[in-house]
Each structure stands twice: as C-alpha cells, then as structure tokens.
Write a protein that binds this DNA or RNA. Sequence first.
DNA 1: TGGATAGCAT
DNA 2: ATGCTATCCA
Lengths: 359, 359
Amino acid sequence: MLEARLASAAVLKKLLDGTAIKELVTDCNLEANEEGIGLQAMDNSHVALVTVQLEAGEFDSYRCDRNMPLGVNLGSLTKILRCAKDNDVVTLKASDDADSLTLLFESPNSDRVGEYDMKLMDIDQEHLGIPDTQYDATITFSSTEFARICRDLSALGESVKIEVDKQGIRFSSDGEIGNGSVLLKHSAGRGGAPAENKPKVKKETKRDPDDEDGSDADEEDVKPDVDEDDVKPEVDEDEEEYELQDEPEIVEDKPKKRGRAPAKKETNGKATKKVTACKTKDGDEDGEVGVSIILQQSVSLTFSLKYLLNFAKSAPLSKYVTLNMSNEVPLLVAFEFSQGHINYYLAPKVSLAYAIRDL
Amino acid sequence: MLEARLASAAVLKKLLDGTAIKELVTDCNLEANEEGIGLQAMDNSHVALVTVQLEAGEFDSYRCDRNMPLGVNLGSLTKILRCAKDNDVVTLKASDDADSLTLLFESPNSDRVGEYDMKLMDIDQEHLGIPDTQYDATITFSSTEFARICRDLSALGESVKIEVDKQGIRFSSDGEIGNGSVLLKHSAGRGGAPAENKPKVKKETKRDPDDEDGSDADEEDVKPDVDEDDVKPEVDEDEEEYELQDEPEIVEDKPKKRGRAPAKKETNGKATKKVTACKTKDGDEDGEVGVSIILQQSVSLTFSLKYLLNFAKSAPLSKYVTLNMSNEVPLLVAFEFSQGHINYYLAPKVSLAYAIRDL
DNA sequence: TGGATAGCAT
DNA sequence: ATGCTATCCA
C-alpha cells in the first residue's frame, strides 16, 4: 500500500515531462518502498542509465508498507502529470494488489480535484546495483551553463570531449564546419556552488549518518562526504575522500557488459547513490554560481552529445549539476533537487570499441 | 447597405482566427441586419452548431438597411483579419448588390489604412431556428479552466462524461492508459463568476428589458434571471427560472434529426439566445473566478472531446464560459464578450446510437 | 512558461 | 491521412 503526498506537482512534472527519462526508455518500474520512490532505467542501447530517487522523508506524507514495483509507461505517466498544475497538491496511491496507480491532483484551495488512474503493467526489470564509485573528478556548476554548453557544441559535432585538470574543465567538439571548445575555470577562492538549492545536505531517512559501510548498500542515503561539506575550499589533492561503498569496482552497466543481458544484481538493493559535491555557503547566489572542481587526477573522456543534451533537460530541477568522471568509466551527471535526485550515467565513447569487440 | 464600425479589431480576430468556427465549416453566410451581424454554421457531420452574434448596439456605429446574407469563405476572412492589428479600427462595408465585403483597418491615429475586399459567394444556407431552451444545469466558470480540462482529458480519451449535481461538475474520461476525472466544486458562498468581463449585464439594444417573450426571439438580450443577480448564494432548487421563450421544445439539431437534412425553420429569426448564468459582484476577481452552478436537475452527458477542444479555443474571448445542459439534449457552450456572444451546440454522444439507427 | 508549428511515425 | 513529438516563438 502506497500513499504519498507532495505539496507541489512541479517537481514531478519537471521530472517526467521536461526530462530525458522517457527518451531513454518507454516503460519502467517505479520502485516504491519505505525509503521513497525510485526509478532506474537503462536506454535500449545500454549506453545510458538513469536513476531517480524521491526521498520518503521529503514527501509531505509518505507511507509504503512494502516494496512495490509499479510498472509504468512513462509516456502515460507524463500525460497524466500534464494534467496537474504546478502548484497542485499531488497524492500518489496504489493498493498492494495494485494494477493501477492513482494520482490525485488538488488545487491549493481544493476546489478542483483531478483524479487519474493509470494502468500499471508487469515489467520484468532487472535492478542494477550501482556501487558508490569514487571519481577522479567531480565538477559542480550551473546546470543551465551545462545545458548551454551541450547545446552550443552540438551545433558542431556529435560528441564532446571533456577534459578536467586543475585549471578547469574543457568541453570540446569537432565537426565539419569547424571545432569549438568551452573552458570553465575553477572558481578559485570561491567555494563553487553554494549550498542553496542543493537541498538539505543530509536528511537520513532511516540509517544514521555514519552507517555507511552497509554491506547491502540499499540505502540511498544523502549523507555525503562529511569533510567537504562546508566552507572548505576545494583542493585538488586526494584528501577529498568520498565515503566509499564496499564495492569499489565499477558500475554494472559498464561498457564491457554491453550487448549482453544487463547484470542482474539485486544485492545492492536500490543502489541509488549520491556523490554529493562540495558545497560551500559563501556567496554568489544569483547569477554566477561558480565552478567547483574536485580533482584526484586529470581526466579526459568523450561522450555522445545527443545523450548529454537529453540529460541537460533536467536543468530546471536544480540550479546545479555535478559531473563525476574517471577515465574509462561512465560519466555520472547528477542533479539534486528538493525531493531527491536524478542521476544519469553515460558510457564514454571509447566504450563503443569494447562493445563492438564484444559483439 | 451595410456599414459597421468597431473600435477594435481584436474581437473579430479572436473570433475567426483562434476560434473553432472555421474548423467546423469552411463557408457560411454572415447575416447582417438591423440587429447586428450574425453567423450560424453547422459542421459537416451535423453534430455541432455554432452561432455568433455581434450586436448592432455594440458597434461604434452600425447601419444595415435590410437583411444581407454575406457568403464568406471563413478561411479567406481569417486571412484578411490577420491583416488587422488588434487595436485597429475596423469598418465593414457591403453595398446592397454586394458581391464583395470591404474591410477597412485603420490604425488608431489613422496614419495607416488597410482596405481589403473579399469576394463573396452565394451560399444556400438554411437558417435554423434555435428555440430558447430551459436547461437543467447551467454552469459558469473560468473559460481557461474549461480549456484546460478539455485539454487534460483529451490526453486520456476521446470523449468526456460531464456530470452535474449539487456538489459540483465532474468531467471524466476513459482511455487506454487509464482514466481521469476533474471535479469542480460549486463555489459555495461565493457568487461564482463575477460580473466583470461578462460585459454590461444588460444593454438593451432596442427592446426594453422586460420584453423577453418576443415570438421571434431575435433579441439576444443579456438580461438574466434577475433573482440570481447578486450576492445571493446559488440554490439548487427550481426557483432559478430562466425567462423562457414560448417554445419549450428542443433544439432543431437534436440527435434524432441527425442524418437528415437539418430542419429549416426560419420562423424564429436569428434565434440566438442567452441563458445567462448568475453573476455576482463579489470578490475573487483575479485568479479564481469561481464555479457557479444552477441546477434544476442532475445531468449526465457524454460529448466528443474533439469538439469541446475546438469550442474551448474561444476562451480568449471571455473570462467565463457557460455550459448549459439537459439530459439527452445538445450541450450549449456559451461565451459572452463585449460585442456579442458565441454559442456552440454539441449533440451528446448517445446521439450516435440514434444516428446509426437512423442510417 | 505556454502555444503554435512543422516534421516524423503510425 | 492522422496523431504525436520535438522544436521554435511569443
């Protein structure tokens, strides 16, 4: 039995309407359980993976007795969410034997009530465990800037090379008409992205903050990297340790696995994760949000712009985006918003070589 | 000889450009006479009928010596109206032997004058007499809300069931992806739609206010149901009597007539009518306009959303829309604006059964 | 932010 | 030919 209430439909609408999820996959399970509502979907070509988590604690009220996989058609869900106005109060309901999900949209003063039942389907979806990876480079900056760069460079070529070093992050693309690159310099001295809009840094749903080594890392706890939590100016050396899950090896949907059935690995539970980047409280709220770069090691990776463009559509959800990269490893593009987060993983383009080899 | 002058082209533009008229019919007669300019058109499938009346008295100047049917192609008229700016002064001219209609568009300060001649055609159009019907349910509410509901529900299914009872009005639709419903609650205590923007409650063009039983109901008088005029909270009982024409029987284009030639009934003249819903002066001007429900009897009817979507495109003409319904009778969707009104009639879907039987 | 249009898919 | 999606414009 699920009953979850959100004060505003805006986030849900943005999540499904604007966003790239439904461009990656048409059907997928919403996983409702005590921790909240999650979603995991890999695109057909197995190059990209998206993960969403809405935290139970961030709902206005939340009740879910047991694990409930709600198989939805994302197009249908999108259509129905379009029937909500941004400031409508949303209630999601599903009974245990649910073959449908009920969405209730109430105007703030309740003089308009929309009730929508969406048929659910059985989706045999493997749930990937995504270990919490330590990345060599973590860059947090304006999400609209990110969208802008992807858009700009997509005018030139189909892929973008992203290079990060101590100086900054460089996006570059080549094509018939020429080539271009955008360099974002590390906002030295300033702390990069302010905490604002990267909501409540930690709001442990049920685990306590230091219980992070759980063998079954089904906790998608928002508790980050305590050390870089505050005003500490980013450094490029290696003392920026994330709290690491016990599985340092790389994501399931890694390039090498392409072409085969995706690894079914239920062990890690929901396995959403959050590599929260540094956030400092200092200034530049408004326009300039700064560029925060945390670097273990320089990285250089190439990605499909088509996917990044899609990912960037999530920009309305958050003022900031965090790019997490290690060489030869899928990029993680993470947006955090008040009720949760959305993470996109994208295999680097070199991976295609492996994939072809594997075929 | 017709010469009619409007201070602003905006209404004309909205009437023909945004609106659904030209989606229902391609050619039709504009009927100019002393009462103003009218239009009546039935769509090809004879399911929907639209009626427009521009009151002579609401023009800045109006002169029309005799009945003049001006056969226009609505696409052409639309194209020409697009040549007017919203605040242009419009003058319509046609001579008695007119085979063309002249439209004059003058900028407010007269430093730009556009003159357009549109070829007219002979259209052998039967003019339907539409008796003033007493409806079991009359609902007045925000026209944009109406448009929104039609749009939302059309994502789900092809038809909408409209149910009205004392509590409110419910629109619901079923389809493959699920089903949905929107309930608007009667704005109890508040007066429903404020008078504002439901223009000049009565502006008797030439008849005097109490001469409403005119056998030829060509008067489209806005004088309503005096009793419910003000702060009086709506009641659901039957004292809400409309002023009734002498023909209580039902509209010509009733379901049973479908498939045959529409009844030609010139007796009632133009036969526009107005079942003006209650309007009170009290509050909530801005966002919430309230929902006024006047109910003789609960109704439940099903309509094609495709048509309602079209009708709803007239929302820019008025802040309010009025739905008039009786069971088994065509719905009347009425918009009133400063210069007149536009009425859409739509046969309920049950009619299709009759229609098929009639075939 | 919402509406309109044009292109693509069914 | 129609409906839907995606992009563009107001």
